[in-house]
Design a protein around this nucleic acid. Structure first.
Length: 771
RNA sequence: GGGCUCAUAGUCCAGGUCGGUUAUGACGUCGCCCUUACACGGCGAAGAUCCGGGGUUCAAAUCCCCGUGGGCCCA
């Protein structure tokens, strides 16, 4: 019989045709039923080229989850979304057009951001599609759509009405030159020369003094405590005593804290609101009351007494003089200090408390812990990341941001009495640009309002993704069928943010957990194990790799190289060499395509042996697929297919399959077994490499898609696997024997088959041309 | 500074819970071989102080302790 396959290798170009077939036949369409398997897909953020190769691997594996579930007979809902809110696109747009967000008209700036996102998004969708992602691209959603943002706002309004939201002061990075708060991402550090001032502080009720060194002596008025390292012998005797601050004469306590470095300055540190980020931490940790020493105009406040109105630098010069006059100055050193600088105006930032909105979370921690216990984690060890985080929550969640490209906080303030008003939920509101939908102030009846200008932290949007995809508040019937969803696949580095905030918000809004399983993937590193980043230049662009080698090669690499939950290294050459396995599979199929399909046959000993090894493979794959750990089936399938099926079994039965020297019944037993093994391999592999398995399946076995098949189940046949080692060793011995005698493989040789393998003697004789 | 996690041939990875053969497989390297599925192949070879130090034990890659180095998150 002529082989149905003539080409010698798998051609990745075929993927494009297969993709088109899938799209035309809509084989992944979803119609909700009573039982559904919903994937809370992470919406990727189009932040600029190239997309991270680790992310491409990540999405390939999420698709394997969907395909595994489908083949297990589940009704899979696999939505696709794009995350478009937040800082990265603002920075990208500023750079691209060489503009400043706050110097650009807001509406115009938002349009520019949207255009940038559209371009980046197109490419991202293209990559996801060409990876073979079987999600619902026809209905893909965007987190900046009216529908999505109205959900974010509605859920906020609901929580506001329940009293879960409040205003509070919180220290912020502040750039007083451009008059804005800035995000941590916009801070750079520069080594600047400055003066380290050594000051004398009196210990109360003694004649002793301690020396404290600081680069910010103008903040003396905001000093609330002095810390020393608990192991610093010099200060042990003063712990718990009062210390008198020079100039202000205020008394503060001296206490220990591990963040004080013995070798820096005198080892004693004054803690002021706020000299640096460590002060912020200490004020929170030690629950100190803050004193605002620097105002929004960048000048010293009234709290600074006679220094009020001066810029911090001027105040510093003056206070050094005054310290000297008062006899409080020990010495002044010139040092190089690593100083946080605003990326935009290049001046040192100030940390200033500002009023922001908070969402209550502290009182929810115990409930979230309980839900966390109920959620199954893959792998289980990563549940610990969530639990540790829950243990360490000490403040509520600050949710307001002074940014533009995000969901607007839907609040209007009465112009007369400042009373905040939230509108009715269900619509998308833009208070900075819209008239207040409420006519009169509920408190003073005034008719004039000012819209809130701030936006939400983007996690406020992302954390309602399970509610959005299940049409919460939009379609009750759909919601009831789909929520709680089944699984949340995501990366390890955002467990503390996305995963945690989602549980928090969904619990607050529905009283239920958002999903029953969480699937946590490790981090993609470069070939040396370093984090990939554009600035380091070690980032690998996935698109050319996929175009060159095909999605299946990339996907099989991702499955066979990445043990689930662990970090992994990305290496182009390794990806390339994975292609060989697909080539092997292709040629096995090519060989089998020259034999007819036989529905049943009478297996002999060799056939029974490979069928029992095949059954082991089925069990092993099930073990991996049940945990959505694709490393297990990928390795097992490659091992079986290459090293047992192709290397030994096919060679053993080749002559029998051709019918040379064997009866028809013996021949059919071989052909039956060959096809049974290959069709099983294809089905086992289908979730990992959907393209090549689809192609081979259709050429060999069925007009219907392999992706409509159910996964193979174990049949637990008679076990012959104890003979595997004997069989492979016997073959090896014969090959070595021929080699040492300089015989060709087809030459005959006199080797006797060992007693325990006597059942296999006829196949061995044909295989090795035994005399 | 805190938490989690990892460390096995030139490279990647298995084994580790439950200590006991010659430490798994792949990539790469080298040698031989076109044998009617595949030279993107076959057969074979070389290549590992299982990160370092200490402990428990008859026995440690595996269990315990202390280091060192990488990664992630938080501060």
């Amino acid at each position: 019989m002529e082989p149905k396959i003539s080409e010698k290798t798998w051609n990745p170009e075929l993927e494009k045709e297969i993709l088109k077939q899938w799209e035309d036949e809509k084989i992944y369409d979803f119609t909700p039923q009573e039982d559904n398997y919903t994937i809370d897909t992470p919406p990727p953020y189009p932040s600029g080229r190239p997309w991270h190769i680790g992310a491409a691997a990540h999405y390939s594996q999420i698709d394997m989850i969907a395909r595994t579930a489908r083949m297990a007979g589940k009704n899979v809902y696999f939505p696709i979304g794009i995350d478009r809110n937040g800082l990265p696109v603002e920075l990208y747009t500023e750079k691209k057009h060489n503009i400043r967000m706050r110097e650009t008209e807001r509406g115009e700036f938002l349009n520019l951001c949207r255009e940038a996102l559209d371009d980046l998004e197109d490419e991202m969708i293209l990559i996801m599609k060409s990876l073979g992602i079987s999600g619902d691209f026809a209905n893909y959603y965007r987190t900046d759509s009216e529908e999505y943002r109205s959900l974010t706002q509605s859920t906020f309004i609901e929580l506001w009405k329940k009293g879960q939201v409040y205003l509070a002061n919180r220290p912020n990075n502040y750039d007083w030159v451009s008059g804005t708060t800035i995000a941590d991402a916009e801070i750079t550090y520069e080594d600047l020369s400055t003066k380290l001032v050594y000051m004398k502080f009196k210990i109360k009720d003694t004649d002793k003094e301690i020396i404290i060194a600081s680069t910010r002596p103008e903040l003396l008025c905001a000093c609330r405590t002095i810390i020393v390292n608990p192991e610093d012998q010099r200060y042990t005797q003063y712990i718990g005593q009062k210390v008198i601050i020079p100039i202000t004469n205020v008394e503060v306590e001296l206490r220990t804290h591990h963040s004080a470095k013995q070798e820096f300055g005198s080892g004693a540190v004054m803690v002021c609101s706020y000299g640096d980020q460590n002060d912020v931490v200490l004020f929170r940790e030690l629950e100190l009351g803050e004193i605002v020493a620097v105002g929004l105009d960048g000048k010293m406040t009234e709290a600074a007494g006679e220094y009020a109105g001066l810029k911090p630098k001027q105040a510093r010069a003056k206070i050094i003089e005054d310290l000297e006059t008062g006899g409080f100055l020990e010495k002044v050193e010139d040092i190089i200090h690593r100083t946080p600088i605003s990326e935009r105006s290049k001046i040192p930032i100030e940390i200033i408390p500002m009023e922001e909105y908070y969402l209550k979370q502290k009182e929810d921690v115990e409930r979230i812990k309980k839900l966390g216990q109920e959620i199954i984690f893959h792998p289980p060890m990563h549940k610990q990341i969530l639990m540790n985080w829950l243990e360490s929550i000490s403040i509520d969640w600050p949710i307001s941001r002074r940014r533009y490209y995000g969901t607007e906080i839907p609040i209007w303030y009465c112009k007369n009495c400042s009373e905040p008003h939230v509108p009715e939920p269900g619509k998308y509101y833009r208070p900075w640009n819209e008239k207040c939908p409420i006519n009169n102030c509920t408190k003073c009846d005034s008719a004039e309002f000012v819209g809130e200008e701030r936006t939400f932290d983007t996690w406020m949007d992302s954390s309602v993704s399970p509610l959005f995809i299940s049409k919460f508040g939009r379609d009750v019937e759909f919601f009831n069928k789909v929520y709680p969803t089944s699984i949340r696949p995501q990366a390890k580095d955002i467990v503390r943010t996305w995963l945690y905030y989602t549980i928090l918000r969904c619990e607050q809004l529905t009283g239920e957990k958002p999903w029953s399983e969480a699937w946590i993937m490790g981090y993609g590193l470069d070939e040396k194990g370093m984090k990939m980043s554009k600035s380091k230049g070690n980032a690998i662009d996935p698109l050319p790799v996929i175009e060159k080698l095909g999605a299946d090669t990339f996907r099989f690499w991702s499955a066979s190289e990445i043990n689930h939950g662990y970090d992994f290294r990305c290496n182009e050459q390794k990806i390339e060499s994975t292609k060989k396995f697909l080539s092997k599979l292709w040629n096995i199929s090519r060989f089998l395509s020259s034999f007819p399909i036989i529905e049943s046959g009478k297996p002999n000993a060799s056939d029974k042996w490979i069928l029992s090894e095949l059954d082991n493979l089925v069990k092993e794959c099930k073990r991996g697929y049940d945990e959505y750990n694709f490393f297990v089936p990928a390795i097992a399938i490659r091992e079986f297919t290459w090293n047992l099926f192709a290397a030994h079994y096919i060679e053993m039965v080749k002559a029998r399959a051709y019918g040379i020297g064997f009866s028809d019944e013996e021949r059919d037993g071989a052909i039956f077994t060959l096809h049974k093994a290959l069709s099983t391999i294809l089905k086992l592999l289908a979730p990992i490499t959907p393209f090549i398995t689809e192609h081979l399946w259709k050429v060999l076995y069925s007009e219907k898609s392999i992706h409509k098949e159910r996964q193979v189940l174990s049949e637990s046949p008679e076990d012959f696997t104890h003979l595997t080692k004997d069989i492979t060793e016997f073959n090896s011995n014969v090959w070595n024997e021929k080699k040492s005698k300089e015989l060709s493989l087809k030459d005959s040789i006199a080797v006797s088959v060992p007693e325990r393998l006597s059942e296999f003697a006829k196949d061995f004789a044909a295989m090795h041309n035994l005399e």
